[in-house]
């Protein structure tokens, strides 16, 4: 299952500037793991021991995975996963 992951500005230093990545996986957790394989530095920015860091939201098709099945949420071919940390700039 190839899905597109959208990377926010503040995490792009860890992706060599890439704004999107195409990765394989059947669940959100697998998609993120595949993403960390591509961009090792991302893991620390997004995840901690217990799963996702609490200030990072992950959406699939516009829905927050916290209100779906968390990291177990299944993804389909062509889905778009958005990683979104809080931003306070004004």
């Amino acid at each position: 299952m190839a899905v597109t992951v959208k990377i926010p500005t503040q995490l792009r230093a860890a992706t060599g500037g890439a704004a999107t990545a195409s990765v394989e996986g059947g669940t959100v957790g697998e998609v993120l793991d595949a993403l960390y394989v591509q961009f090792g530095e991302l893991r620390d920015r997004i995840a901690d021991d217990g799963g996702l860091r609490r200030f990072v939201n992950v959406y699939i098709g516009g829905e927050d995975i916290r209100f779906l099945n968390g990291l177990e949420t299944t993804v389909s071919d062509g889905d778009e996963v958005t990683i979104l940390p809080a931003v306070a700039g004004g």
Binding site: F55, V56, N57, A88, G89
Partner: peptide, 25 residues
């Protein structure tokens, strides 16, 4: 509800001066 907690300071880009496209705000 959206962000239960803020990022820690070392990961919070707002803690220092950051680049922003002038038109964006």
């Amino acid at each position: 509800c959206l962000y239960p907690t803020p990022p820690p300071a070392e990961l919070a880009p707002s803690c220092g001066a950051n680049g922003v496209l002038g038109v964006l705000p």
